[in-house]
Structure formats: C-alpha cells, structure tokens
Design a protein around this nucleic acid. Sequence first.
DNA 1: ATTAGACCCTGATCGC
DNA 2: TGCGATCAGGGTCTAA
Length: 281
Amino acid sequence: MPELPEVETVRRGLLPVMEGLVIATAQVNRPDLRFPLPERMAERLTGQKVLSLRRRSKYILADLSSDETLLIHLGMSGRMLVSGNMLGEFHHTHPAPQKHDHVVLTMEQGTQITFNDARRFGSMDLMPTAKWQSHKLLADLGPEPLGNAFNAPYLARRLEGRLTPIKAALLDQTVLSGLGNIYVCEVLHRAKIAPTRLAGDLTPQNITQLVPIIREVLTEAIDAGGSSLRDYRQTDGELGYFQHTFRVYDREGEPCHTCATPIQRLVQSGRSSFFCPTCQR
DNA sequence: ATTAGACCCTGATCGC
DNA sequence: TGCGATCAGGGTCTAA
C-alpha cells in the first residue's frame, strides 16, 4: 500500500496523460470497492476535461470541467497503470486485461488508465469541486507533512499529554496526513526514538528533530519513486527503489546500519514496528 | 475523548 | 504438491 511518496509518484505519472486532457470513456468492471463507486460514475466522467491533478495526503484528486472532482484512494494494493498511445508515442498494444482491473479510463488521445486493486481496499468518489475539503474522507486529515502548517509547535501541541505510543500517533492521519507503516518506522529510526515511547513523553528536542526528519524521509522516497515491496508499481509498471534505502523496515534480525545490533520487530496496534533497540530510545 | 481490536479482501509465503 | 496459518505501504467502526 502506498503511502504519501507512492501516491505522489503515481500522481506525477498520471500528470502528462491526464491533466488538460479529456476522458473519452470510462469503464467500470466492479463497483464494489472499499465503498460502492458513486452513482453513474462512468457517465459523470465521460467527456470531462481534467483541469488539474492534485494530491492531498494519500488521495489523488482530479478536478473536472463539470465542476466535480474525482477522488482516488489506492488502499493497500491499488495501482494506476498507464498504457496505450502516450504523448504521441505509439505503444503498439494495450496490455491484456488483468484480474482486478476495476476501472479503465480511456483518454481522448488513446491512453488507457487502469485502476487495478486486488484487495479492493481502494476507493473512488465524485464530489463538487468547491466542497472537496469537507469530503468525509478528507475533512479530518491533519496537515501535509511537506507543507508549512506542519511544524514543531504544531506537532508538540498534538502530541502533548497523549498516552499512546509515538508509533501510533504518527500513523494517526488526523495528526499529520501521509505517513504509513514503512515511513513511520524509518522516521523513528532516524530520529533515534523507540516506537514504544509514549507520544506525550517526547522531549522538545525530539519533536524539533522529528519535523525535518519526516520531511527528509518523504522527500528522499519521492525522489526514489516510492518503495516497492509487493503490490506497488509506478504508472508505467516500474518499481520504486526507496526500499533499498530502508534502515529498519522489513529488516528483522539484520544488523542496524549504525550499530550492528539486530533489528527487532514488534506488533503495535496490529502493525509491525521495526526498530533498533540500541539506537532508538 | 482516547485507544485497542476486529474487520474489510486477496494473494504471497512459510512451515509441516 | 498441498494445506493451513500468517502476513501485507490502507482505513472504518465498535466497544471499552
């Protein structure tokens, strides 16, 4: 599942084949994703020009000429794959339809954009563009980690007094939006903070260090095209390569790059935390 | 108000 | 090779 860097990579991959261009047809193969697809989605997309393609947290938003916005969430296993006639280059054939190709958009110049999602935790919705910020899935999201509203005073205020582990607090999308399991693990290792530390027990120095580390990890991951473990692919089917840079995630038993102590794994609120028991306190 | 746990669904992998 | 248990980048909902 894609976290912020993977979603941003997908958005950048879709940009040249969607923004400013018209959706010729929309085909829905399966409407029962995480939530049912909106009423008459295919008709509401057909003939619309995509005015802009934005990202909010782990969501992609396509603003349409109809004054509606298409909201896309990839869930755990969702992919957006681009094929066909792209930017004047002719890629001779469309790939064979795959299992779990739930929605296929065909753009006017012939590009096909396929939403494939084996687990169907992903979702799509349509809403009035003017009201996008109050959409149920977006209304409670915390600030973008790469934006100005996310800073040390803000984070300190949100963590103050919280008895939950810092791991859980950073996964809480109302605190900040965009981090997932991988990047929280990586951030906490770089910040030398144990995932079990209570959020309210972080020192002001911890919090001051955390903010630029979060920005750094996410920026590096975006530059690497995201992380590909199992499902995630860029829009051209290529893998991201940030996984080669992991310091702790999925490295249980392997030596810490800093001190050689074996990386440990523990389960917190149902998810694996990977950490170095020596470096992270 | 917070927080932990079950649940949603499919597929890959591992141990037997 | 087969089979069950376990695990997986997400989030929502319920109940304590």
